[in-house]
Structure formats: C-alpha cells, structure tokens
Simulated scan of single mutants.
Amino acid sequence: MSVPYNFDEIIDRRDTGSVKWHYFDDTIPLWVADMDFKAAAPILNAVEQVVQHGILGYTKPTAALFDAIINWHGSRYNLQLDKENILFSPGVVPSLALMMHIFTETADAVLVNDPIYTPFMTKVKQNNRTLVMSALKEIDGKYQLDLDDIEAKIIEHNVKLYLLCNPHNPGGRVWTVGELEALLTLCKKHNVAIVSDEIHQDLTLSGHKFTPLLKLAEAENYAHNIVSLTSMTKTFNVAGIKGSMIFAKDETLIRKISQQQQLNDEYELNLFAYTVMQSAYEEGGEWLEQVLTYIEKNIEITLDFLAGHLPDIKVMRPEASYLIWLDCSAYGEDNQALYDKLREAKVELNSGIKYGREGHLKMRINVACPEALLREGLNRVYAAFRGGDKS
C-alpha cells in the first residue's frame, strides 16, 4: 500500500552548509536547483542500512546497480542499455568537461544554445575551446531550435561538438522526436558530435514525452558520435550525493571515454552514491510520482499568481522540471538592479543573464518547495516589483 509523502513539511535547512539556504536572515531562496523536500523513504533507509553496517570501505558498482539503471531507462523510455554502455562519473558538469577531450582539441569550436545552463559555457571556455552560441527562438511562448542558425554557425566556425540540454534548462522545453531527428540529421551532415545533458529527464511533466537522444542515434546510424549524460540527483533530490552516468552505445567511443576517465581518475563514485542510485531506481518511483504531482500544483499556483498580480511578467510554461523562466523586462532595464530589487525584498531567484545574452532581464524561479514557502516567496516578488506588500 502506498504511503503519501508530506511535501508541505517545512524543514529548516539553515546552518547546515546548504548552498541554497546560506543566508543569515529570513530570505526565501527560490533559486538553485534542488528541492526543499525530504528524500524518498527507501533512499533514506538504504543510507541508514549502510551506516548501521558500520564499514565504509572501498566500493564498486554491483550487478544489481547496473540492473536497476538498465531497468529504469528501459521501462520508462524504451532505451535499451547493456552494462557495457554505462560509465559512472562524479557529476554531469565534470562529464561535460571530460567530453571536451573526447570530441575536440584545443581551440576547436563547441556550439551551445542561448540561453543555457551556465556550466555549458564556462566548461567550454575553461578547457580552452572556442564557444559558439546559437540563440533559441521564442515562438508561441516556448523555445524552438533555430536550425538554420545552428547550421550557419557550424559551417562558419567548423564546429566539432554540440552540447544539447534536454530537457532544456532554463526554458523547460522537452525537445520532440521531430526536433531531435532534425538536429541529428544536421549534425550528421557536418560530422558534429552531440553530447546530451538529460539530467531533468525524469521530471518531464504531464502531456509531454521525453525521448533519449541515444535511442534516435542508433536509428540514424550515428551512435559513434553521441553521448548522453544523466543522474539520479535532480530526480530524487539527492544533489549532495555526487554521482552521475555516461551512456554511449558505440564500443570504440565508450572505450575512449573510459580511458580518459582513467587519466583523470574520475570513474568511481563513493559508497553512498552507489547505494542511493540503486535504491532510487529500484524503489523511488512512488515518491517521484507524488512529487511531480506536487510540483505541477506549485507551477499552477505560480502561473496563476503572476497572471493575477504581475501580468507584465511573461512566463514560459515548463514542460519539464520545477524551474520556470520569467521575462521581467517590464520591471527594469538593468540585470543587477533587477536581481538586487528581489534580494532587498528577501527573495532570491536566479538572474537570467547568467544563462547567456538571451537571459537579459529574465529570472529563473524554483517552485520545488512547500506551498507555504512558495506563496510567501511570490508575495515578496510582488512586493519587490510593486513596492508594497500584498494583502
């Protein structure tokens, strides 16, 4: 019998080393992408069992862990994986950096969309590659890939690698099969590798369907140039437990990635990461179903509040995740001033400009928190932009 989780519970995270809740005042953080919800009971129980065992020694992935990963992705996305297709990594961002050394050389061009999750840009630059950006087109309130611009940039800059974010962060798009197939065809035409960050895949919302890029790559006979990155951390709110996976279907490619990991000594996870990953994929489905229902309710609360009280904010309805992209250009002309206005009202959102030029005067809000905290945070957003408290 299923047990309902209480996502209305407010858990004090101050003075715990939390990145999200680092304040010395009563600021409400609606920014960095972790949830203010307790992790699933089976995950917490699994960690407790490890601690009770008492020996925290060297650990390697077990057959049961591989099976859990394979079964999760096979049953949910019809992505057929074998043990040999899976490598482990400390995180998706370290894997993005790793991929620079798999598919490119120093100064080679790497294409990303604008806006995009900040490390897509920083890891390209930090690894001495040439960053090329293609702006997404906003049509009917959601982002679209500009395939003409992407191809023009590929040709102009001799792009070697395309970093895809699916579902997209911060815009919340779940790219359709048609969009992904068109992108694959384009990249295959110009021999451009694609690395797809799919960490938000399990947070796809009602009415939308996530398709793994690797599933399509095989049909296009292009698996030798495709890598997918994903993790249990966003799905199950265990970001403090570092761990992720690298998926590739081509034997030569997976061997090359493994060899590069050996050079960097970045191929192992810690004991708790293996434990949490297996427990999440074996027993976390019920928690995920319930938390998605709660998140969808919070999304509606946010959209209704903004429509009723701050209608000049243009909201991009997400198709995945608990992050909502807001166009706040009606309320200011300077990005820092916009951010500071909200901080003065003791509510923090992510400043959109950190996601690229297309983030100018935009903000990203995280609604994965108890409803009471969300409503108070929204009231503070209203106070910041209207100069007074909402009654």
Rank of each mutant, 00 (worst) to 15 (best):
E319I: 06
I86S: 09
W21N: 13
I155K: 14
D15K: 12
A97W: 00
Y281S: 06
T185I: 01
T275C: 15
V19D: 11
V192R: 01
L213G: 03
L292I: 15
T27Q: 08
G171D: 05
A193G: 01
L164G: 01
G178L: 08
L145F: 15
P167G: 04
I254N: 07
G172A: 08
F37S: 05
N78Q: 15
L373Y: 05
R76F: 12
L269D: 09
F247W: 08
P42N: 04
A46I: 04
G172K: 05
Y117F: 15
D26A: 10
V47M: 14
F120R: 02
F24C: 09
F103E: 00
D149L: 13
V159H: 03
V177Q: 13
I254F: 04
N335L: 09
A307S: 14
K297D: 15
L30G: 02
A280Y: 09
Q336C: 07
P318Q: 05
R343I: 13
L161V: 00
A239P: 04
L183P: 03
K189M: 04
D114G: 05
H190P: 02
L205T: 10
L87M: 06
K20C: 10
R364A: 13
A273G: 14
T122Y: 10
G243I: 04
V291A: 08
G243W: 04
F272H: 09
E289D: 15
R386S: 14
H360E: 14
L338M: 13
T235M: 12
R255Q: 15
I55T: 10
F247Y: 11
M100Y: 00
E268R: 14
A368F: 04
L374T: 07
E371L: 03
V381E: 02
Y382D: 02
T211A: 04
G178C: 03
T62W: 00
D114M: 08
T252F: 10
M277G: 08
R129F: 01
G359Y: 03
N270Q: 12
P42S: 04
T211W: 03
P370G: 04
G207P: 09
Y117V: 14
I11A: 00
R129H: 00
T59F: 01
D148K: 14
E376R: 11
T293P: 00
W175I: 05
L163W: 06
E181V: 10
T211L: 03
E283A: 13
Q259R: 12
Q262T: 12
V276F: 08
F305C: 07
D197F: 00
E105Y: 08
A182T: 11
R375V: 15
V124D: 02
Q261S: 02
E371C: 01
I102N: 00
R129K: 14
P42E: 05
Q278P: 10
A273K: 07
Q80A: 12
V238Y: 11
Y117N: 06
D34M: 12
D265F: 12
G141N: 07
V347C: 09
Y382T: 03
L56F: 11
D389S: 12
V195L: 00
I246W: 02
M232I: 14
N127C: 07
V347W: 05
G352H: 05
M363K: 06
N270W: 08
V47E: 12
V291T: 15
I10W: 00
V93A: 09
V227Y: 00
I313S: 04
E358H: 10
R380G: 05
H190N: 11
A63P: 01
F37V: 07
K60H: 13
P90V: 06
